[in-house]
Design a protein around this nucleic acid. Structure first.
Length: 593
DNA sequence: GCCGTTTTCGGCCCGACTGTTTTCAGTCG
């Protein structure tokens, strides 16, 4: 059982316990905390279980969660969930995915109307039965019906690059309004997560209502979900959800921290604040009033609303907010509660790699295979981006439909490259190729030709369905080939379209480290492969990373920023990224010189 | 259920908006 599946079971436990009601809310929260840990963990927990490792070492995993995980890995099911499902229909958890329906309402729908599925809920709402229930009404019933339609049609998360395109004109629309002093996008977009569920926009203004009005008047707004005095939520025509919050300038820093998240990072900050007698919200950092007689609430009170606040100590800038908590400013890409607060406290935050550090691009295609531009056009585009070197990596013959090259065609290309390179001393031209790794792990070109290349990129483009063991063997054999330098888009995933191939990440990374082979972070926003957590694992195991665009046309060379952002999320410094350094260091790390 | 520079009990993050309430519960982020 894989981590995501384990997490899904634990999440279902939490949902069912919540629907059941009368359960200690902190017990439910404990399940949700464990879900986060399991989802974020880079290596399969199944391997930890097989090694007999102590799972309670993991954050938010105690004896109970550890035994749950062991049971799931070894038996494939969780007896506690089976017991719970005998009391509460499991399908009720789908109801709370609907907007406006939470655990309490789901429970009521089941108790009063015997509803357990979305289909049954739709029928009951259409018949007007839902509005009759206490705590429900006509509006709620209508909202549920709309929500069901959207639930069935929903598109899922948006890729970061799509959101970039959708959100830029909206930002321009807001910025041209006089009432708006400043606009910034927060949320997972600012943390540069590979996909974004909804977009959080933060506006600074003293005329809040005017900003809300401007936002609601944006031509691409398809429907308004809610609109208050300081916040509004809309769906754009693209179905992308956008939340706007309008705040005073003095609150900008606290608000930006709050809305950038992640949720887990914020919770950790607030816990830290409480330890210091402070309270953090989107309105600032406040001293807590002396808490003489704090009356403990009986269960269900999840919030600390009503706590007496004292003097405000920070809020205008993010720096101030972190400083008030005894921390240096933390880059948004690191705010995932993966140890950044501890590192910040010790002043050990990494100096993250940036786009300006990049000195070359190590995967791109020309019209010799499936690229759209000539070799010389690609070269000139690299020069204009200020690169010191670049690698041209047209496909090998196994990808016939791309015009992949056999030995004879490669020989002709190398001759053409020599001629072009001789006219362009301003950049170092690396003769390279993206060579297919065949199903058995052999490379798709004669060894004799490999010797004529400066750099060899090896990639999997077929047989994505091999077993974990076979796929691991395949990659290990290819990496062990003495000519191999870089594994291109190692997991082969296409975000939202094709799953990653299955292999033993630890074994492959260790093999790469041993053989001086680098792993690529493919910067194309559809791939982002390796992903952030995998790169963290690679760094831990001493495997160098390269960031390449895999450009098939000149314009795609600009996708480099997406790769760099993912590398930043993986805590990588310029020293961890080979093509952020001088060519000699790169070639030496790959065992070329 | 988890956790520990106020450790093995007693805590556990904070606020806005909506709809249905006649003073607030539920949901959401």
């Amino acid at each position: 059982m894989e981590n995501l599946e384990i997490a899904a079971v634990l999440r279902e436990m939490a949902d069912l316990l919540e629907i059941k009601g009368g359960v200690n809310p902190f017990r439910i929260r404990a399940y949700r905390n464990a879900v986060y840990t399991v989802e974020e963990y880079a290596t399969p927990l199944r391997t930890l279980v097989e090694e007999g490792a102590d799972l309670t070492e993991l954050p938010s995993v105690g004896n109970e969660m550890a035994s749950h995980i062991v049971e799931l890995v070894t038996t494939g099911h969780l007896s506690r969930l089976v017991e719970l499902a005998a009391e509460i229909p499991r399908s009720l958890v789908t109801l709370i995915r609907l907007p406006g329906v939470g655990p309490k309402k789901a429970r009521k729908l089941w108790d009063e109307l015997g509803i357990t599925t979305i289909d049954e809920l739709e029928a009951a709402a259409a018949a007007g039965q839902v509005a009759e229930l206490e705590g429900f009404g006509e509006k709620t019933q209508g909202k549920i019906l709309e929500g069901i339609v959207r639930y069935r049609a929903r598109q899922g998360r948006f890729r970061l690059a799509e959101v970039d395109e959708l959100i830029r004109p909206l930002l321009d629309w807001l910025r041209t309004d006089d009432a708006v002093q400043h606009v910034e996008v927060a949320g997972s977009y600012r943390r540069r997560r590979e996909t974004v569920g909804d977009v959080d926009i933060l506006a600074i203004s003293s005329a809040k209502q005017a900003v809300i009005d401007r936002f609601l008047a944006y031509p691409q707004v398809l429907r308004v979900d809610l609109a208050g005095e300081t916040r509004a939520t809309v769906h754009l025509a693209s179905e992308l959800q956008v939340d706007l919050r309008v705040l005073d300038e003095q609150d900008a820093g606290a608000a930006l921290v709050y809305f950038t998240g992640s949720k887990e990072h914020n919770i950790a900050l607030r816990r830290r604040a409480l330890e210091r007698g402070l309270s953090v919200s989107e309105y600032g950092v406040f001293k807590l009033a002396a808490s003489d007689g704090v009356e403990p609430q009986e269960d269900a009170d999840l919030s600390t609303t009503g706590r007496e606040l004292g003097e405000r100590v920070a809020g205008r800038t993010e720096q101030q907010v972190y400083e008030s908590l005894g921390l240096p400013w933390i880059p948004p890409e690191l705010r995932e509660q993966r140890g950044e607060i501890v590192a910040a406290e010790r002043n050990e935050l990494p100096q993250l790699v940036s786009l300006e550090d990049m000195r070359g691009d190590l995967q791109m295609h020309s019209d010799w295979s499936d690229g759209k531009n000539t070799i010389e056009e690609m070269l000139e585009a690299c020069v204009s981006r200020g690169y010191e070197y670049f690698a041209l990596t047209d496909h090998s013959q196994a990808l016939a439909m791309t015009g992949g090259m056999d030995a004879e065609k490669l020989a002709r290309q190398l001759a053409a490259i020599d001629e072009i390179a001789s006219r362009h001393p301003e950049i170092r031209f690396l003769r390279s190729m993206e060579i297919d790794v065949l199903a058995d792990g052999s490379l798709d070109i004669e060894d004799g030709m490999l010797e004529r290349l400066d750099l060899v990129v090896i990639s999997i483009h077929s047989r994505f369905d091999l077993s974990t063991a076979d796929q691991t063997r395949r990659l290990v054999r290819a990496i062990e080939h003495p000519a191999s330098d870089i594994v291109g888009h190692p997991t082969g995933r296409i975000i939202g379209r094709r799953d990653a191939i299955e292999f033993d990440l630890a074994e492959v990374l260790d093999c790469a480290a041993e053989n001086h082979v680098a792993m690529e972070c493919n910067a194309h926003p559809n791939r982002l492969d390796l992903r952030d957590t995998h790169m963290m694992e690679a760094k831990k195991r001493g495997v160098p990373i390269v960031i390449s665009t895999d450009a098939h046309r000149v314009a795609e060379l600009d996708l480099m920023s997406y790769g760099v952002e993912q590398a930043r999320r993986a805590w990588l410094t310029p020293g961890d990224v080979l093509n952020a350094g001088p060519l000699e260091v790169l070639l030496s790390a790959l065992g070329r010189i």
